[in-house]
């Protein structure tokens, strides 16, 4: 179980996160939503160790990981796909994915078997293996970024707005991949601007605002919360009610 307790963190003095409490059950998909600048990406950076906490702690199981450098956190199976520009543009797709296994580079057979598993799960990796990553489309890049994380067979995956800038087909592919990870028991902590997509995929939802957690619950509860509906879903839950045939949506019209 991944848990943030009263986490305070920021960039150069000013605290962006002002006491964040958040729990991810093992095997869950937790989706964090909230307005721009709420501190969603900052939460992921704190978990992966790219940003230090100034107060509070991040624990995984019994262990406090917030004092570790990023590579130690990575070794414990926590990988991150950032919001943008994660790849090495001049390297080939294959090399990019291979770099995901940097920490297991000494174990050649493990590296090879992981590579084969990743190619099976994300066919694009084999199909475009010799293309430079910088020449891929946004959707393809996302797939390669996720594939790269899989080289470490992660326990926890942190995904920062995976839908950003993707066309509908790429979006479906990414969503399918996230579902596959979920089926394999990977814990996913997801940040999404596309609230419908994110909460639709997720088991749990978290709403952040101004560096604080405003609301937590099951994805369903969060999605149906009247305030969320009016804030992020345009206040017209009825439009989805028709397509998703969701009785709960009708039961709770926007406030």
């Amino acid at each position: 179980m991944l848990r943030l307790r009263r986490v305070v963190a920021g960039y150069g003095g000013s605290a962006v996160l002002q006491g964040v409490d958040l729990t991810c059950e093992p095997g869950s998909i937790t989706c964090v939503v909230g307005p721009n600048g709420a501190g969603k990406s900052t939460v992921l950076r704190v978990v992966s160790g790219l940003l230090r906490v100034t107060e509070g702690e991040v624990t995984m199981g019994e262990e406090t990981i917030s004092s570790f450098p990023p590579d130690e956190i990575l070794r414990r199976g926590v990988t991150q796909v950032p919001q943008s520009h994660a790849l090495f543009p001049s390297m080939t797709v294959r090399e990019n994915v291979l770099m995901g296994g940097f920490l297991i580079r000494r174990d050649k057979s493990l590296l090879a078997s992981r590579m084969a598993a990743v190619e099976a799960l994300v066919p694009l990796v084999a199909e475009r293996s010799n293309d430079r990553a910088g020449n891929l489309s946004g959707g393809q890049r996302r797939m390669v970024e996720i594939a790269r994380c899989l080289m470490l067979a992660p326990k926890v995956m942190l995904l920062d707005e995976p839908s950003l800038g993707l066309d509908p087909r790429s979006l479906a592919a990414v969503a399918e991949l996230i579902n596959r990870l979920h089926d394999d028991g990977v814990t996913v902590l997801l940040v999404e601007q596309n609230v419908r997509l994110g909460l639709g995929l997720a088991t749990h939802g978290v709403v952040m605002e101004g560096g604080k957690v405003r609301l937590t619950g099951s994805a369903r509860e969060v999605m149906d919360h009247p305030e969320i509906a009016s804030l992020y879903l345009g206040g017209t839950r009825a439009t989805t009610a028709g397509t998703t045939a969701d009785p709960a949506a009708r039961a709770h019209p926007p406030a």
């Binding site: 992966s48 790219l50 990023p70 590579d71 990575l74 070794r75 990988t79 991150q80 950032p82 520009h85 994660a86 790849l87 090495f88 543009p89 001049s90 390297m91 090399e95 291979l98 770099m99 995901g100 940097f102 920490l103 580079r105 790269r148």
Partner: peptide, 23 residues
């Protein structure tokens, strides 16, 4: 070599390199 890949990775994208555990 892995050392060379780490060097190229850091040159092309320092934070991307940190994400895969390159010191």
């Amino acid at each position: 070599t892995w050392a060379g890949r780490a060097i190229r990775a850091s040159a092309q994208n320092p934070s991307g390199a940190a994400l895969v555990g390159v010191g």
